[in-house]
């Protein structure tokens, strides 16, 4: 009935084989990772706070060199995403720059706060950075009250702080970030009293926004301080590894990795690695503060 030419047959066969190959390879590959016994090949997924992400990225790379049979995937997202992800099973380890709250788990049934185990992996200070021009003009030290004044807009000009006659350009983080919450807690502000000019969703963006102006102030993790965006002293104490470790710097906090239940298997191996001397060295390289011994 149908006359099918030789050429058409060939094309048809080719398409069918291509599809078959595509399907086979995908199933084969996915089969590979699932079927082989743990220990020979394993995947570990981390996700959450963008503050913790540089540590997680660097540790993952070093960890994979040590254990070539383990693949570590690092996702961003934010503290909330990390905690939700580990509770819901999306990630094996959730990174957070703050402690987990009950409100993080409202969507997830059957997991309570007590099911999550926090592993403190590093310390971090939130540095207050200003534009180079402001720092050079003499604003090198502000008090916590003044800082609060800047962020709730009772202080709007650098002159009040002994700087040039320039409006203060206030940069901060988006309302759902861990760092934003930390700042509110530490300064006694809340959502309606922390008034920003610009909100950015990552530490790097905050630094970029402050560096791009001659009148900016912002808060970032300790690792993001450099000559372009110098950190001011807070109550006379400059943010550094030593002042954060002995808790004299007013804006110190801990960084966590969360697991659901006690860490086991590959999770334990990874967290042990982060807490080991090598891991803490990476923490220091990424310009965070290692845990005191």
């Amino acid at each position: 009935m149908f006359i099918v030419t030789q050429k058409e047959k060939k094309v048809g066969m080719l398409i069918i084989t291509l599809f078959a190959i595509a399907i086979l390879t995908t199933t084969l590959f996915s089969g590979c990772t699932e079927n082989k016994p743990a220990g020979t090949t394993a995947t570990l997924s981390l996700g959450g706070s963008t503050t913790v992400q540089p540590i997680a990225d660097a540790c993952a790379q070093a960890f994979m060199v040590l254990h070539s049979n383990i693949t570590v995937q690092v996702y961003g997202g934010g503290s909330g995403v990390g905690i939700k992800g580990v509770a819901g099973g999306t990630y094996d380890i959730g990174d957070a720059s703050r402690e987990a709250k009950a409100s993080d788990l409202t969507d997830i049934q059957g997991v309570t706060l007590s099911d999550l185990v926090a592993h403190k992996i590093a310390l971090d200070g939130i540095a207050i950075i200003v534009s180079k021009e402001i720092y050079n003009a003499g604003v090198t030290n502000i008090s916590k009250t003044q800082l609060k004044g800047i962020y709730n807009r009772t202080i709007t000009n650098w002159q009040t702080l002994g700087g040039p006659n320039e409006a203060i350009f206030v940069v901060g983080r988006d309302t759902s970030s861990g760092t934003y919450t930390s700042i509110n807690d530490m300064l006694g502000l809340n959502q309606s009293t922390q008034i920003l000019d610009v909100a950015r969703s990552e530490n790097a963006q905050v630094k970029a926004a402050v560096a791009g102006q001659n009148n900016g102030i912002g808060y970032v993790g300790l690792g993001f301080v450099d000559a372009n965006t110098p950190a001011v002293k807070l109550n006379g104490i400059s943010p550094s590894i030593s002042t954060v470790t002995d808790n004299t710097y007013p804006l110190s906090r801990s960084l966590y990795m969360y697991t659901k239940g006690p860490a086991s298997g590959v999770e334990q191996m990874f967290i042990d690695f982060v807490l080991s001397t090598d891991g803490q060295k990476i923490v220091e390289q990424e310009e965070f503060v290692p845990l005191p011994k």
Binding site: T106, S176, D197, R200
Partner: peptide
């Protein structure tokens, strides 16, 4: 500089929001 659009707000806040 204050101000946002619907799309922009979704994309900045989605990453870390919860509940």
């Amino acid at each position: 500089s204050k101000g946002t659009t619907v799309t922009s707000f979704i994309v900045t806040e989605m990453g870390e929001s919860s509940g």
